[in-house]
């Protein structure tokens, strides 16, 4: 679909979401340096289009599982920046009351089944959600985000095999950012295109430009429609790039400045912004207004997090079990 075939409203939404993800990450990085956020952050700066494009193709009742680099996925699925920032700041008002942090944020009402601290850990969980949808004959889809590194985990194989076998309504979305932590993909897998692995699980494997939000949206929409119609799973590989380290503070000795600069010429956020002006004919004022709105939202989010209470130490004992058998479990 040409960009001019999309309604302005949709284009603006996609841009707003990507801009929000980018700016949220930059704020989080700053607030971590400033001391508001105690834990580590794996930022997704540079990977905004995969998160936003994929989630834009889902319905509110669909669900996702996310990764250690999950802030973008959460925002794209409707996560509220203030509750996310509060969770990063380890406050009671955060998504998990300060018990999860960056790696474990979730909102079950929004279909966000959780970021994940284990590479590949969310993939079988998405398959389980899809199993429930299929078994109850609900027209819902589960989407699992994971990176190129996770495609070498056993969980990937078991999950895709089961989903292919049972034709489950699930989308496996591989964000291939070319590095698994500090090691390039070429040193981790004997194939450059991970999507070809789909053939082994009898499902389509699709490669998209992961920095093109419309390409990501269209590929994911096609996969979601097929899954909803009973056509089974799809493996989508979005080729993308992370601008920052694996984690904040990563010395990044494993890649060159030239490579990083080359990818920045294909920036998913500013590139899309330029297309909105040049190809879709949107007025710059509209974008300015939207950007100002996002900045104000993030100001509020940081203030909300900073003003929120820290948890009482004793509350660490709550929430392990649904039924503590009268306290006997401890």
């Amino acid at each position: 679909m040409a960009i001019t075939d999309y309604p302005d409203e949709k284009l603006l939404h996609l841009y707003r979401q990507m801009y929000l993800v980018r700016e949220f990450e930059l704020r989080a990085i700053n607030e971590r340096r400033a001391g508001l956020i105690p834990g580590f952050i794996h930022s997704c700066v540079g990977q905004e289009a995969t998160a936003v494009g994929a989630c834009a193709a889902l319905e509110p009742t669909d669900v996702i599982t996310s990764t250690h680099r999950g802030h973008g996925h959460l925002i794209a699925k409707g996560g509220e920046p203030k509750y996310m920032m509060a969770e990063l700041a380890a406050r009671t008002t955060g998504y998990c009351g300060g018990k999860g942090g960056s790696l474990h944020m979730s909102d079950f009402n929004l279909g966000i089944l959780g970021a994940n601290g284990i590479v590949g850990g969310g993939i079988p969980i998405a398959v389980g959600a899809a199993l429930a949808f299929q078994q109850r004959k609900e027209p819902r889809v589960a989407l699992s985000f994971f990176g190129d590194g996770a495609a070498n985990e056993g969980a990937f194989h078991e999950a895709l095999n089961l989903a292919g076998l049972w034709k489950l309504p699930v989308i496996f979305f591989c964000e291939n950012n070319l590095y698994g932590e500090g090691t390039p993909q070429a040193k981790q897998a004997p194939v450059a295109d991970l999507a070809i692995r789909a053939a082994g699980y009898a499902m389509p494997g699709v490669i998209v430009d992961g920095n093109d939000v419309l390409a990501v949206y269209e590929a994911t929409k096609a996969a979601a429609d097929r899954a909803r119609a009973g056509g089974g799973p799809t493996l989508i590989e979005g080729k993308t790039y992370r601008y920052r380290g694996h984690y904040e503070g990563d010395p990044m000795v494993y890649r060159s400045k030239e490579e990083m600069e080359a990818w920045k010429l294909r920036d998913p956020v500013t590139g899309f912004r330029a297309r909105l002006l040049a190809e879709a004919g949107l007025a710059e004022e509209k974008l300015h207004a939207l950007e100002a709105e996002v900045q104000a939202m993030l100001d509020t989010a940081v203030a909300f997090a900073a003003a929120s209470p820290k948890p009482q130490p004793q509350t660490a004992l709550e929430g392990v079990y649904g039924d503590t058998d009268g306290g006997l479990v401890f």
Binding site: P124, V127, G128
Partner: peptide, 10 residues
């Protein structure tokens, strides 16, 4: 892995 993961997601 898939059995336990699927049970959890379901």
């Amino acid at each position: 892995t898939a059995i336990i993961g699927a049970a959890l997601g379901a």
